[in-house]
Design a protein around this nucleic acid. Structure first.
Lengths: 217, 217
DNA sequence: AGCGAGCCGTACCGTACGTTACGGTTCGCC
DNA sequence: GGCGAACCGTAACGTACGGTACGGCTCGCT
């Protein structure tokens, strides 16, 4: 039987009750891991399974809606890139790095990425795309204008913003996300995150500062 | 019912037939993604389910054995660190980077990491630990002596080999693995891998070469 | 040849879960 | 008050799959 899912495709036409249901599903996902059964969601959200199916079509629809719902809530801070000097660029980069580390080490992000990775192995890949779109790609969209502004201000030197971003991404994230996804304990304290963000930023600046560019790149 | 798995714990007491079965399971894992049912493995390996249960205890045991079996086959090249000069250090690092990119972008690695990530969400975490142990941690074990040798030879300057390794790891892998796990198309040609390996190596050297160390680190 | 161990193929069981169906209740609206 | 839509709770159905049982075959050993 084919289902036409009503208004949950990409827009945000969610009633408060529906948001509450998705929040319950999200909590269940974070706490119970893979035990996200329709029965469990219905019980947790105090709603009927019939309602779940009417609203979200099938289990996949519920999963997708849940991921999109959480993704729509995670927004990395927008940064203004006007009148940039080195100090403000540094703090901007540190802030991005710190925010990103906090996001990827949060229980919610881990649970969401887990389910998206699992889902990517089986046929349709929408979940992975949604997670990437609202995570890594959203970060790139926010960060690139900062990098471009830094280049315009003569502070940074790079040929391709995407490449520069990916280097920054690698310096910040390193092996953190994959280790967390694979179940490695690796608690990141607030202080450690701050230190990592500062280190990554300094390394990035060392590689891309226009007056200190290493030869051979 | 409790099962005592015979001799499949950590050692390598596998008969040829058992290896063939695990190879079949591995192929199934890579090709079919999540459809790794006991029935499918038995059919693919032309063996009986009874044999699977006798050899591997239960589904988890089969999964673990499959992951360990593949992990035992992936060995990053050991590099000798004696009599190091900058050129040979550079080629060593490039080779490590290139090998690692090839590994994490292979279908087998993606499938294995997917199943391990899925598994990590549900209770026991052995699979994730096995993958990490034979992947990221094995790489660190192989690479650190090279870094140490580079430091002994006065070519590199760092205080902690682990930190230096993690930076190298980040510069090499960047966002590749998470994007692949999430189903992002991102084909890495041989040439692209070579270029990435060279770039990562140059960036790493720029950050850690002893005579060109950026201030503030 | 006779025997037993190991394994293949397959049928079978139990259960978990996705999905559907339905009676009862709440609530907005006329 | 009366009506209908939406929804809750729960029972029921179908199926897929993990796990078990069993008959038959091969093969090495004596």
């Amino acid at each position: 039987m084919l289902h036409i899912v009503p208004e949950i495709d990409t827009s945000e036409a969610l009633t408060e009750r529906q948001k509450a249901v998705l929040d319950a599903a999200l909590r269940l996902l974070v706490e119970e891991g893979d035990q996200l059964t329709m029965t469990a969601v219905a019980r947790r959200a105090s709603c009927s399974k019939e309602t779940l199916y009417k609203w979200f079509g099938d289990r996949d629809g519920l999963l997708t809606a849940t991921v999109q719902w959480q993704a729509s809530k995670v927004r990395v801070a927008q940064v203004d890139g006007k009148g940039l000097d080195l100090a403000s660029l540094t703090t901007s980069l540190e802030r991005f790095a710190s925010d990103w580390l906090k996001v990827i080490s949060s229980d919610t992000s881990i649970a969401l990425n887990r389910v998206a990775v699992s889902h990517a192995g089986s046929g349709k890949d929408n979940l992975g795309a949604v997670v990437l779109e609202n995570g890594r790609f959203a970060l790139a969209t926010r960060l690139k204008p900062v990098l471009e502004a830094g280049r315009q201000a003569g502070l940074l030197d790079f040929s391709d913003a995407e490449t520069a971003f990916r280097t920054f991404f690698g310096l910040v994230a390193r092996d953190v996300q994959i280790r967390l996804l694979l179940g490695d304990r690796l608690e990141l304290t607030e202080a450690a995150i701050g230190g990592d963000a500062a280190r990554a930023t300094q390394q990035f600046l060392a590689l891309f500062k226009s007056n200190n560019r290493p030869q051979g790149l």
